[in-house]
């Protein structure tokens, strides 16, 4: 027993020494949301070319982003589900939006092309509840007169990990389907009534590609990259807008960031004729008083660059640039909330 204790002490001390030595390197580590992964890794590659700093971002899911920043194993976490202001307060954390994008239902059904299938939020939720389990169910047929629907079981694909994409998805369902609200609720990971789980946006996309007659949901860029057919979703105004930067922007425009403490604001089921109903924001979460000030500073420099100069890349990957007023608010938030 003594030997073991001695050994572990030596090991711990040795490692701590090694880790202390190399803390000066300006390598920033972030982890979390898979929603933001494509744009962050693109930004990272571009920023590296300009500045030399290496930002290593790993998509482990929004839940993971929050978990790892709380455990202080990363320099920033990224989440599509905002943390509540009181939780932030308790943990000594701050959060700010980085990018806006849309979540789309993707399908793999023979004979149905992208954008052909129309679904209301309620029916979509019913599919994910298992209440509607055949593609030629009356509820779907009623919304799609003229579209030939196969007589096959619907294979539901959801996220297996804690995910902000799931958070926004289930948040939308809770707003439009009371059944969903009472039975399942909203969260980064919920107790899914039916379906199979893929890890990350990429996992869901991979499953939808491979499983026949399936429906899943991914961040828009993943649907585009993968050439996955998407379905249209009815918005609060009763319209079926196409998912694109314009409709995501329309939803973002309706948001009132100025009054939201710690930018705590969820944009699903936004009003407006053109607003895409499942529009989401990704927040970066960081310590207000970080253990490692140098890394934290490097991270802020990166985000400053990304918010001011990187929004063009964001649009090229089909995310919505943050409005300029919001960027100003975020920079104000940085100076007032974050030390160092």
């Amino acid at each position: 027993m003594f030997t073991k204790k001695l050994l572990s002490t030596c090991l711990g001390a040795g490692l701590a020494a090694v880790f202390a030595m190399s803390a000066s390197a300006a390598d920033i580590t972030g982890a979390g949301s898979t929603f933001v992964y494509p744009v962050l890794s693109k930004w990272s590659a571009d920023y590296n070319k300009i500045n030399g700093d290496k930002l290593n971002y790993q998509s482990i899911g929004s839940g993971g982003g929050i978990a790892q920043i709380k455990a202080a194993t990363v320099d920033f976490g990224a989440s599509d589900a905002p943390m509540k202001p009181e939780d932030l307060q308790a943990a000594g954390l701050g959060q700010f939006p980085v990018v806006v994008g849309g979540i789309v239902p993707v399908i793999n059904v023979k004979g149905i092309a992208s954008g052909q299938l129309k679904l209301s939020g309620k029916v979509l939720a019913d599919i994910f509840l298992g209440n509607v389990n055949k593609w030629n169910d009356k509820a779907i047929a009623d919304l799609n007169p003229g579209l030939k629907l196969p007589d096959s079981q619907i294979a539901v694909v959801h996220r297996s990990d804690g995910s902000g994409t799931s958070f926004n998805w289930t948040n939308f369902f809770s707003k439009v389907n009371p059944d969903w609200k009472s039975k399942v609720g909203e969260g980064t990971a919920v107790n899914w009534p039916v379906g199979i789980g893929g890890k990350g946006n990429e996992g869901v996309a991979a499953y939808v590609t491979r499983v026949k007659d399936s429906i899943g949901y991914v961040e828009y860029a993943y649907a585009l990259q993968n050439k996955l057919p998407f379905a249209l979703v009815q918005n609060a105004a009763g319209q079926y807008p196409k998912p694109n930067a314009e409709s995501f922007g329309a939803a973002a425009a309706s948001a009132e960031w100025g009054t939201a403490k710690d930018f705590f604001l969820i944009m699903t089921n936004a009003p407006g004729e053109k607003a895409w109903p499942i529009t989401a924001t990704t927040w970066a979460i960081m310590y207000k008083q970080p253990k490692d000030a140098a890394r934290s500073k490097a991270a802020f420099d990166f985000f400053k660059w990304a918010l001011e100069k990187g929004q063009k890349e964001a649009s090229s990957l089909d995310y919505v640039p943050l409005p300029e007023t919001l960027v100003k608010q975020i920079e104000g938030y940085w100076t007032s909330e974050f030390k160092g």
Partner: peptide
């Protein structure tokens, strides 16, 4: 493998 890295509260972990 799926959930450990992202369990954000203590009871979950």
């Amino acid at each position: 493998a799926n959930e450990f890295a992202e369990a954000s509260d203590d009871l979950y972990r």
